[in-house]
Design a binder for these strands. Structure first.
Length: 433
RNA sequence: UGGGGUGUAGGUCAAUUGGCAGACCGUCCGGCUGUUAACCGGAAAGUUGGUGGUUCGAGUCCACCCGCCCCAGCCA
């Protein structure tokens, strides 16, 4: 006789029926002749109740062999039970061990140090908090795809192996046949610009790599970036797209992932405030603001983490800081006609100290000005031939931005460090598991 | 790469400031028919990150090395 299998999330539909549930033991309690097994199957938590007199001696003996994280199958009648985690429990009639687990499982339902947890990241992922974060990440990713799909954007996948182009900071290199070195992509933007001329509105969604020796709660060496690029958008349009997108993501998570936000004990009242429009601070005004608050930053400097915190403290939503000095920003940003010392760009600073969530700009579309900037930066001109071609053959105003996925998720989840919001974080001193 | 901190049982941390290395959780053994990070009784568990030094004596002080954490720079 076989019984149907059920996932824990489906148990409400099976009340009164006998089913088999498979999963991993998260907790065991025994009172001599009655025992409780908390089971996790990825869809939820459930309690199995084993009464000695109600099962075979063999099944009762198998209960004695159970350990945390053993993979088992429990068969029994489903009933609603408020005392059970998840709200439903199984009156166990049969218990089978699918995969035993030895006694040295390294993660307890207690506090652990971060080093121990990261060494055991492959097992840490099983805990409720990590599951909640993963579900919110999934929701954010899906929201981004939906946002762009609904607005007629084409998704373009750009190469991860590239010749040396992109940002100025550290590159990871690898041998590439007869071509010498290839580098892991730091951005898909330049390819995105090429695609924008072909398809109009595009976005990229993929991993990027930075060999920066950064050890802060906001940095990973491998992180995911979403980079829209839109033909005929100017810098203002660009910021409008950013605030619409960020608000869309937050709204979606609030709408569909409240249980997970609750698991994380996130104060959602702050997230509910995130609706367009966001404040737009001119860089010059931002400098004046932080100076008034005691910062030593002066015009021409990039804003430090401390300065960003001073700015964000005045607002309960993300804040744009726009039109930075040319020297502080990348070569491809368009000169600001109103003030040629600056470029048409923006950083979107997340609230609550999560730092720069987005960097965006209108791109330089003048062939000569772009070439001049490439030379000024001492960049290898021949490597940018194809990029210059975009200004040679039908140049067009366009703008885009890069959203750091992990920073966005860390902010929404309220996690102290972004290493928790990616399944297997890559950092300066962390390459495994 | 700088500045600060830290490293003791499987995990999280103590050790009266240089004088017998301990607690809780977990694990093991025993008890308990409604538990909720169960509870009660008992037990096992240590090259105190490494190397050298000072000392009658070092977890503790000194030097160097290693690992990790936090902050900064760089960026998303």
């Amino acid at each position: 006789m076989t019984t149907p299998f059920a996932r824990i999330a489906e148990l409400p539909q099976h009340v009164g029926q006998t089913v088999t549930v498979r999963g991993w033991v998260t907790h065991l309690r025994s009172s001599g002749k009655i025992a409780f097994i908390v089971l996790r199957d990825g869809t939820g938590l459930m309690q199995g109740v084993v009464v000695k007199n109600a099962v075979s001696p063999e099944a009762w003996a198998r209960f004695g062999e159970l350990t945390q994280e053993a993979c088992i199958a429990l068969t029994g009648e489903v009933k609603a039970e408020p005392r059970s985690p998840g709200g439903h429990e199984l009156g166990v009639s049969e218990l089978a061990i699918i995969g035993p687990s030895p006694l040295d499982y390294p993660i307890q339902p207690k506090e652990h140090g971060i080093d121990h947890l990261l060494d055991n990241r492959h097992l840490w992922l099983r805990t409720p908090r990590q599951v909640a974060i993963a579900k919110i990440r999934h929701e954010v990713e899906q929201a981004i795809h939906d946002f762009f799909y609904e607005r007629g954007f084409l998704r373009v996948d750009t190469p991860l192996l590239t010749a040396a182009i992109g940002e100025r900071s550290g590159l990871f290199s690898t041998e590439y046949f007869e071509e010498g070195n290839a580098y892991l992509a730091q951005t898909g933007q330049l390819y995105g610009e090429a695609a924008a001329a072909a398809f109009g509105k595009i976005y990229t969604f993929g991993p990027t790599f930075r060999a920066e020796k950064s050890k802060t709660r906001r940095h990973l060496t491998e992180f995911w970036m979403i980079e829209p690029e839109v033909a005929f958008n100017d810098s203002n349009d660009n910021m409008r797209l950013q605030e619409d997108m960020v608000s869309f993501i937050v709204e979606r998570v609030l709408e569909r992932r409240m249980p997970e936000l609750t698991e994380l004990e996130r104060d959602v009242s702050k997230l509910r405030l995130v609706v367009p429009p966001f404040v737009r601070l001119d860089y010059t005004d931002a400098i004046a603001l932080v100076q008034k608050k005691g910062s030593s930053a002066k015009w021409g400097d990039d804003l430090g983490a401390e300065d960003e915190a001073l700015i964000v403290a005045d607002y309960d939503k993300p804040v744009f800081v726009m039109n930075y000095p040319k020297e502080a920003k990348a070569f491809y940003m368009k000169e600001n006609p109103a003030d040629p010392r600056t470029v048409l760009c923006d950083d979107l600073l997340a609230p609550e100290g999560y730092g720069e969530m987005i960097g965006g700009s209108q791109r330089e579309d003048d062939y000569d000005k772009l070439l001049h900037r490439i030379r000024e930066e001492g960049l290898p001109e021949d490597a940018y031939g194809w990029y210059l071609d975009l200004r040679k053959y039908g140049t067009f105003p366009h703008a885009g931005f890069g959203l750091g996925l992990e920073r966005t998720i860390a902010w929404i989840c309220g996690t102290p460090h972004i290493r928790e919001v990616i399944a297997f974080p890559r950092m300066m001193h962390r390459l495994r598991p």
